[in-house]
Write a protein that binds this DNA or RNA. Structure first.
Lengths: 343, 343
DNA sequence: CTGAAAGCGCTTACAG
DNA sequence: CTGAAAGCGCTTACAG
């Protein structure tokens, strides 16, 4: 069985290439091709496994039916979940997705954007490092369809989908304060990312609303690469001083799980010695010890929104308003905060 | 800034399209194009963001520099980790990866294979549903480069990378028996998948080696879709009868985490009432309560091997032997089995 | 319905 | 080095 081309099936069937192409693209009826001929073509194609070359098709039609997805890390549970939703929705609409991880490196991300572009993706979805303003502006100038999620560029108008990082963190911090915790630490990443900045602000706002000033020393900003050891240092620092904290907010799931590891190692009891909460969660957060109260991101909604906005963009030639969505998070209360503390 | 094409940069620079193409593809030297001209072309291209159309390039050269990855579910932690490794390695070699989840549906998987093929991927990586023998044979007949991982077709000779499911399960079951457990249950998926079958055999072999016959009633095979409720039923069944089990082996990570959830709900103490172990793990298995002894799969090695074999296949025109690798698992002992039990 | 033809944007011998 | 040309495998007006 040799590889079949359009011309082969045309020849075999004694019809024109035009007819075959038209029929296989569902344009048989509108071109008044007889039912019999259509059936003949369709059956032959199916029987002999005729596979049209998408490269040629894409080149000819000027679109590839492919979407590019650029995320920090496909192995991270949050991104892999969103990727799953995006892929499922995209497939429903006939798109395949090309993905690539930037590993938080702006240079890699920039190259990825260009690489996706030269592969003629029809649209781009990016959870950006937020350090490629130039590329983002290039995309805008070219009117290339793209939507950002998770991380966006506050100073550049674009389509994006994010969650309410500020309010989510404020709420979970208040939850802690309402339970009688007075000295709340915040372990987070070094600044640079918008969601992280928003979470810090939410934390501070909650303290302020409770008439507590957020001591600088309660906020620990650590580097992503060496977070394993730095979380440990941060916790030792927060818990060992004379004025030890009685609660810690972790700004993301892997900091929280490492935090839990460290707390166990240090023999600190959660929530008795210190209560903890996490922004974003691991699916196992309900079976860790103790189960961790978390701010849950609406993964499905994020994926749906992103695809919806992007496909709208791709479909329409008229320039539309930028669409931005800020989705609500959900506070999942578990036992890592204990019950009310009277001191 | 309009979109630039090859002919545009040729015109602007007063050189031929040929020269531009040659230089940009790194064939300047071998075609004796002067250093100055080369620099001129390269600089202009970079400055004006010339992005060659990969569709045209691929069509012309007969390869797309794209690899297709078909897995059951990108959101599953095991597959997302392997996908990350594969993507990283592929990128190093200049390949981008197109991915798609089959969600365990053979029909979807079959369509995906054809879809990837018509997108002219240069090779395919599949963790198969094992129900598309026809497509696999088609790929073989076409001499299309592909390698299977995790799940393969025992009756069809292909390249594949798997782990030692049999021995891994045997070892972890023996670990349980060596600790004095006598009645070991096995909660697994309904048959159909080779790794699952191997794990069951490993479990039985361990029992046999300890002169225990594996009672049929100790093995619970459940459906993937409704595993949440079925794990519960299985555990109730295994623990409530007069001869309750004193240990349970879970054949995969999500069964184990659901098992832990259920055991907590039923107020059964792990490992006192029942010890548990898991084949494959969640990254949080060291902080759940109790930490779960697991058979760890060598995710990096799997990814590396798959890419290595595939790229070899793509690179060589001579037909080579099928390459198969069976990688070792690692037993990670945690406290979910307790210490030696004397009864 | 057909058939010849142009076009998508590249790459790559080939003659000079 | 150039330049004209063929070719990759499709799609799509167009004249008949």
């Amino acid at each position: 069985m040799k590889k079949l081309y359009l011309k082969d099936v045309a020849r075999e069937l004694n019809v024109s290439k035009t007819a075959v192409s038209l029929v296989l693209n569902g344009k048989g009826d509108e071109n008044k091709i007889s039912y019999d001929t259509q059936q003949k073509i369709i059956n032959f194609a199916k029987k002999h496994n005729y596979i049209p070359n998408q490269l040629a098709r894409g080149l000819s039609r000027g679109k590839s039916e492919t979407i590019g997805l650029i995320i920090p890390n496909i192995s991270d549970t949050f991104y892999s979940k969103v990727a799953g939703v995006i892929e499922r929705k995209a497939k429903e609409k006939g798109y395949t997705v090309l993905f690539s991880s930037s590993y938080e490196d702006p240079k890699t991300e920039g190259e990825l954007i260009l690489s996706m572009l030269n592969r003629q993706v029809d649209g781009l979805i990016i959870a950006s490092t937020q350090q490629n303003k130039k590329e983002i502006e290039f995309l805008k100038k070219e009117k290339f369809p793209f939507v950002l999620f998770d991380r966006y560029y506050p100073e550049n108008e674009t389509d994006y989908v994010i969650v309410d990082n500020f309010y989510g963190t404020k709420k979970v911090t208040e939850h802690l304060l309402n339970l009688g915790r007075k000295k709340v630490g915040f372990i987070t990443l070094k600044p640079g990312l918008e969601p992280i900045a928003q979470r810090l602000m939410g934390y501070k706002e909650a303290l302020k609303a409770h008439n507590l000033t957020s001591k600088e020393t309660y906020v620990k900003e650590i580097g992503r690469e060496e977070y394993f050891s730095e979380v440990e240092k941060a916790i030792i620092d927060l818990t060992a001083r004379e004025q030890a904290v009685d609660a810690i907010v972790f700004s993301t799931h892997y900091l929280a799980s490492q935090g839990l590891r460290v707390l166990k190692k240090l023999n600190l009891k959660v929530p008795d010695d210190v209560a903890i909460v996490s922004f974003d969660e691991l699916s196992a957060f309900d079976i860790v010890e103790p189960p961790v109260t978390s701010v849950v991101q609406p993964v499905n909604e994020i994926g749906y929104s992103v695809i919806e906005i992007l496909l709208n963009k791709i479909g329409s030639t008229v320039k539309t308003e930028f669409q931005t969505r800020v989705l609500k998070t959900k506070l999942e209360i578990r036992s890592s905060c204990g019950s009310f503390l009277s001191t």
